[in-house]
Design a protein around this nucleic acid. Structure first.
Lengths: 139, 139
DNA sequence: ACGCAAATGCAACAATGTTGCAAAATAATT
DNA sequence: AATTATTTTGCAACATTGTTGCATTTGCGT
């Protein structure tokens, strides 16, 4: 088991349960983003569908993961950088979704460019959703 | 009825039906984006739910409207600039979603900033999803 | 080990989206 | 203008996705 799992749960005042450990482990292992369906498939019959929904919801509330806006409006989640332990707010993000393999990357290290909007719009968050082909799918 | 409606349908080789006229009119009147639910409510019992789904799908295929990625992963549609009559591909877009009133704006005239990705990623589309408070909701 | 609080599983439900097919509306042809 | 061919619609049924309430189970602090 990944060493950070118990730490992360404790730090967020969550009880250490099988589903939380397993789901968090999935995020730590797989670098890309996960959809609810991915988790359901990978965990087999181990957890109830409802438990997965509630676990994801809890993780989002605690800032352990965040949702990703995608071009096809499918709901995906990715680990927050540094587990958001610092109250980090995810105001800016660049995400990349591969048109071929469907993998979604959370590019925390890419700088979000400044966006200039017409007068009257107050910006609180900027999400950049890039599609194309990824490292593995070059062609 | 908006004068562009019949033109647009004909240009895209679509038969002129009540639902298509009405739904296209909604997009032309309302400047912001529409969700399936908005259309369903506004049209009352006039059209079947399935018809609305199919009409939206057809419009997307013909390039009359496009879907908008949103921070909350709700599916919304907006008119394509120039009805995409020129085979315009919507490679770049800035969308704004108001946190207060929920209105979604399609800001065709705002320049999409350049995004620099790590080597190996090939960009085919960039969507910028901005949240905040809009013109009407300033505070 | 015990008791309390929290999380889980189950069932039922709600919302959203899809598919097949017969009936109706639109377009094309004569 | 009437007839035929094609497209679109409405209905029914179904699939998927997400939510809620409640009894049972699990984890946690003492």
């Amino acid at each position: 088991m990944h060493p950070r799992i118990v730490d992360t749960l404790k730090r967020n005042q969550l009880s250490i349960t099988d589903s939380r450990k397993k789901i968090l482990e999935m995020f730590l292992q797989k670098k890309g983003a996960l959809a609810h369906a991915d988790i359901e498939q990978q965990s087999g019959e181990e957890f109830d569908r409802v438990t997965i929904y509630r676990t994801l919801q809890t993780f989002v509330e605690k800032g352990i993961i965040h949702t990703i806006p995608t071009a096809d409006n499918s709901v995906r989640y990715a680990l927050c950088k540094d587990d958001c332990s610092e109250g980090h707010h995810h105001d800016n993000h660049v995400h990349f979704m591969c048109d071929h393999c469907g993998t979604t990357y959370c590019l925390d290290h890419v700088t979000v460019p400044a966006v200039v909007l017409p007068a009257g719009f107050k910006i609180s968050q900027v999400d950049v959703v890039v599609s194309g082909s990824c490292l593995k799918c070059q062609q």
